[in-house]
Design a protein around this nucleic acid. Structure first.
Lengths: 141, 141
DNA sequence: ATAAACCTGACTAAAATAGTCAAGTATCTT
DNA sequence: AAGATACTTGACTATTTTAGTCAGGTTTAT
C-alpha cells in the first residue's frame, strides 16, 4: 500500500501556493521550479483543483492561481478528494446487497477496513492547509 | 490510494484460520473455498506468512497450516509486514541526506506523511487477530 | 500406492501510475 | 498590434504494480 505522488504533489503545490498567494497569483511554472514537479503534470492536477473550487485561475501574463478559500478552511480531505486520491480500503461498498467477494455475506474483515478508512479520514479532516504552512514556518525558524 | 487485496486476503485467511486452528491444521483448499480466494494466490501469501513465522505448516495428507503464536499476539502490523503491505507514504526516507524529490531539503510536506504513517501504523499495532475473530463472533450473535 | 496437501519459481494480462506532447485560448506589456 | 506569459484541454505512452495463473515439484497419512 503506497501513497501515490499525485496526492503528494497536490498538497505540496498548494502549500507552496499558500505561501505566496496573498501577494500575487502564483504561476505553475514557479511551483514547478521550486518543488521539482513537472509543469505538465501540475497542469493536470490544477485542472482538478480548479474544478473542485480549491483554487481560482487568473489567465494571461502575470497570471497564475490563487486559493479560492482561506487556507484554514481547506482541509486535506478536500484536496485529496479533488485529485481522486482518497483512501479506499474496500471495493465492495457499492454492492452492499451482494456482500463482498461475490459471497452472500460481508467478508470477515469488512468492518475492519471500514474502521481503518474512518481512522485515516479523521486525520485528513483535521489537517488544514494553514496547519501545513505553519508547520513549515516553525521548522524553518 | 487503494488498499491492495493481498493484504486484505492475508488478514481474511488468518481470521478464517484462527477460528479452526485449535482443532486441526487448516488446509488452504478449505480457506480458498470458504473465502473465495484463489488457491494459488493463497499459496503465495502463506509462503510469506510462514517465512515470517506467523503460521506453521503441516505437510502431507490431513496437513495444512496452524498459527505459530496465540491470536492475541499476532497484530495486524505483523501480518501486513509479512506480505509486504505496510503503508509507505514517502519514498525519500532511505535517502535522508539527499532530501526529497532530488532537492537539498526535505519536501514541504515530508513531516505530514510521516505523521500519517505513524497514525495508520498505530491502528495496525493495536488490532490483534483475536480482536478480529471476536468482532466476528459478536456480529454473528 | 495414491491422494491430499504443501512448496517454489516463473510467467502474464490488465490496470494504475506518472507522466509527456500537442495544440490551443486569454491577457498583460510594450 | 505583436509577443510573451500563462492557463486549458485532451490524447497519448512507457513503466510499474497488481492480481493472479501455471507447471512442476516434495511430503506424509491412509
Amino acid at each position: 500500500m503506497k501513497l501515490s505522488s499525485k496526492g503528494r504533489y497536490a498538497v505540496m503545490a498548494l502549500v507552496d501556493l499558500a505561501r505566496f498567494n496573498e501577494i500575487n497569483p502564483v504561476s505553475l511554472r514557479d511551483i514547478s521550479l521550486r518543488q521539482g514537479i513537472s509543469l505538465d503534470y501540475l497542469e493536470q492536477i490544477f485542472s482538478k483543483l480548479r474544478k473542485n473550487e480549491i483554487v481560482q485561475s487568473v489567465r494571461g501574463k502575470q497570471g497564475g492561481y490563487i486559493l479560492n478559500k482561506k487556507a484554514r478552511e481547506i482541509k486535506l480531505t478536500n484536496i485529496l478528494d479533488a485529485v481522486d486520491e482518497k483512501v479506499k480500503t474496500v471495493q465492495c461498498k457499492k454492492e452492499l446487497k451482494k456482500g463482498c467477494n461475490g459471497k452472500a455475506t460481508k467478508c470477515l474483515t469488512h468492518n475492519l477496513w471500514d474502521e481503518l478508512e474512518t481512522h485515516i479520514n479523521n486525520f485528513f479532516d483535521k489537517k488544514s492547509l494553514e496547519d501545513l504552512v505553519q508547520d513549515n514556518l516553525d521548522r524553518r525558524a
